[in-house]
Amino acid sequence: MPKKLKVRLSLFILLGWVLLLLGDRVDELRVYQGASIAVYAIAIGSIVLLTGYSGQISLGHGALMAVGGYVAALASFEFGVPFWAGFILAALFSGMFGGLLGIAAARLSGPYLAGTTLALAVGLPSLANQFSILGGEQGLYFDIGMPPAILGESFTQYKWFYWIASLAALIVFFLLSNLLSSRYGRTWRGIGSNETAVALSGSNPQRLKIVAFTLSSALAGLSGALLVMTISTASPSAFPLALSLSVVTGAVIAGVSSLKGVILGSVILVAIPEVADAISHRVGDTLRISSTLPGLIISVLLVLAVLFTPNGPGENLRHLLHKGKSHK
């Protein structure tokens, strides 16, 4: 095992340990939010892989998450597959679906791809009403069962969600960070900045783009399945257009060009409803404010991020530190 890989592996194990300890220290609500953060982190990671590396955009990752969520729910509901296998199936199926989509996507650039994936995000959830096996508007019930008895009496359902989601996120990010620092990651980065140069150096940009789209979709599917786990149903209303957009927003706020910001992005996404709640309580809780404020905060953050920290806050910080040094 190369040394770098060893360091990275121990880093992730350490991170897992910290997360494990954290889960014991905070109350139920925080544990649940922790699970949501892990779910969003995987989804944002899939956008970083797609946009930050291979230079493609998707406004339809909510639809791919829906594919994953429904596959997991169907597998356990109809075929009695154990939940962890359901998650793997979810990633496989949405990866396959994403691969097909990626074949079309690799031929498209920026706005076309954005519009196409947007149309997918709008259209796909309505399929649930077309086929009765998908459970219509109520959706499908997805229950992963009680936590194993070995974990003790006081081990709650939410903590079980938190463990599963965090473990999944840790595994995903360990694999992803290795992949992105490999030859693939570098070539993807190249496609994002200069496709012609990549083609001239003997790689096939089209194929690499399709691979990126497939992997990204598989991750989105996995996060969709985990999302369905935390809310226990797969329904069209769990995957609205807003979900697709907020995942992109999280990625842009965190800096789309590196994996490091992913946690920041997902924490912000989970924190926004709570912050909005606190503000609307302070100014007098009217329905008007509480229903529009989360959307406003997230959109303002998105616009500010695009204008002022286009490559992530980390990049700006580094510039600032550099400047500070050179002045001394």
Binding site: G52, V252, P310
Partner: peptide, 9 residues
């Protein structure tokens, strides 16, 4: 990398 998607976003 944001250059390509900035207007859309």
């Amino acid at each position: 990398p944001i250059r390509a998607i900035a207007p859309v976003v």
